[in-house]
Design a protein around this nucleic acid. Sequence first.
DNA 1: GGATCACGCAACCATTTGGTTGCACCTGCG
DNA 2: CGCAGGTGCAACCAAATGGTTGCGTGATCC
Lengths: 108, 108
Amino acid sequence: MRSSEFGIPLDAVFGALADPTRRTMIRRLADSGPGTATELARDLPISRQAVVKHLQALDAAGLVQAERVGREVRFAATLDTLDDASAWMADVGAAWDRRLSRLRRRTR
Amino acid sequence: MRSSEFGIPLDAVFGALADPTRRTMIRRLADSGPGTATELARDLPISRQAVVKHLQALDAAGLVQAERVGREVRFAATLDTLDDASAWMADVGAAWDRRLSRLRRRTR
DNA sequence: GGATCACGCAACCATTTGGTTGCACCTGCG
DNA sequence: CGCAGGTGCAACCAAATGGTTGCGTGATCC
C-alpha cells in the first residue's frame, strides 16, 4: 500500500481547516458556489481584509481557486486537496488497527 | 443524512494535525504502540517539555489518551476522533459535488 | 534510605496568527 | 470624463504558539 508519500501541503491543509472562520468560508463556497472576498465579508463579522487573508491561507492549501472576472476576483472551492488529508488520516488509522489486531491475536 | 452536527473539537483536531511534529508523534504511537513523553523526545529534535506540550494538544483533540503506569505516563493513540474530521470533509465534499452536478445538468 | 529517573509547573522568549485601519490602484459604467 | 466599487498593499497590534531552561516532587530500584 504505497503509503507515506504525502506531500508538503498537509501542514497547509490541516492548518487551513483548523480555523472555524475558514471552515465556514469553504463550506459557504462549497454549497452556495463561488464568491468574492467582499461578498464573503458581508456574511461574516470580520473585515474584508481579514477575509482576504483567510482566502490566502485556503489558496495556499489548494482548497480554493481564484479567478479574475473584470474588476472582481471570484473564489471557488477546489476540494481535491481534501483527499490528501483524508488519505493521511486513513493511513494512520490503518496502522493503528493493524497494531490492535496484532495485539488481539497475541494476548488472551 | 445526519449531517452538520459536528461538535466543537474540530478546531482542536485539525489544529493538532496541522503541526508536522504532532503528526509524526501520533504516527509513531499508531504503529509502534504507546509511549511516554520522555521516549518520544528521544527520537525528536526537541525537548521533553516541548513534547509534553504537543501531547497536551493531541489530548485536547482526543487523539491520544494518557494512562499512568507507576512513575511514568504512557500515551496511546485514540483515533476515533479522526472520524469526525473525515466526516466533516466528506460532508463539504458532498455539498460541492452536489452543486457541480446541478450545474452540469443545467449548462451545456 | 538514598540515588535516580520521569514527570509537572512556571517563567520567559521569538515568531506566527488573526485582526484592524488607512490609502493607493484599477476597472467598469453612465 | 468622472466617479464608485472592488482589490491590493502596508503598518500596526494583541494574543496564541512552539520552543527553551530551571527547579520541585514522587515513584522505583538497590
